[in-house]
Amino acid sequence: MTFNKNLVISLTLGIFIGVIGVVQADGTAGTTTDPLVTVSYMELKLKALDDKYLAEVNALKSQIEQLSQGGNSSKGSQLFEIINVPKDSAVYFADSAEFIVRVGKATVIDPNAVGIPDLTAGSKVLNGKGVPIDHHMLVPSNDGRGIVTADDCWMMIKGNYTIISNK
């Protein structure tokens, strides 16, 4: 009985490849040894992401609620509104808001260091500087600009604004 040399090599190689395939298929789905992704694996990962982002959203909602408890908002109008702003309060203006401080002392809040245009003087009032009495001021964009009062202030405001009382 004479065996063909090529037949023996082919059978040995076939058995070897078959054994490797069986060993590789032994891993469980969704592990590092078997990269097959199952629905349950994806649901688990998506649930973890949902929980993470839900916690962040709830934290932001809490911060917004804390800020809104200390202040009140006005929709503003096309006419000047006369309001009294208590001492140590902050007034933040929306875009295109106009205001005039009639009585009291206030300083500019400007996180971007661009100033608030003073239309009466034709200049800008920079962060930390006093707002001149009876000067027409304009806030061009909703970027956190406003004023903080050092005294009780009477103001005229046209447009949207938010008052946050520090009392």
Rank of each mutant, 00 (worst) to 15 (best):
D50A: 08
D152V: 01
L138W: 05
I9K: 09
G21P: 01
V101A: 02
G27C: 06
T31V: 03
I15G: 12
T162K: 13
V103P: 01
D26Q: 05
L46C: 10
T28R: 07
G104W: 00
F80S: 11
V39L: 15
K158E: 03
S165P: 01
N112A: 08
I83A: 03
I20H: 10
Q24W: 06
N142P: 04
V22R: 00
W154T: 02
A121F: 05
A106V: 09
L11M: 15
E43Q: 13
S68H: 10
I116F: 08
A113W: 13
A48N: 11
D95V: 08
V114S: 12
N58T: 11
T149H: 01
K167Q: 13
S73I: 07
V131G: 12
I17G: 05
T149Y: 00
L67N: 10
L54S: 02
T32K: 06
Y41K: 11
T33Q: 01
Y41H: 14
K158Q: 10
I15M: 15
N112P: 07
K105I: 09
V103D: 06
P117I: 04
L13I: 15
E65D: 14
M137F: 12
R102N: 08
L79C: 03
G71F: 11
D88Y: 08
S40W: 14
I100K: 00
I116N: 03
I164M: 11
Y92E: 13
R145V: 07
I157N: 00
K75L: 05
D88N: 14
S40V: 14
T28I: 07
P117G: 12
L67W: 08
V23N: 04
D118W: 09
A90I: 13
Y53I: 05
K124N: 15
S141I: 14
I64M: 10
N4S: 15
Q66I: 04
A48C: 07
F93Y: 14
S96I: 01
N166V: 01
A48M: 10
I64K: 00
T107I: 12
T38R: 11
V91A: 07
S74M: 02
V91D: 12
V19E: 07
S123Q: 03
T12R: 15
L46G: 06
S68G: 02
P111M: 11
V57Q: 04
A113D: 15
E98C: 03
M1F: 06
L79Q: 03
V23C: 12
L7V: 10
T162L: 05
K5H: 09
N6E: 10
I100H: 08
K167I: 04
P35G: 08
T31I: 09
N166Y: 07
A55M: 02
I20V: 13
S73Q: 09
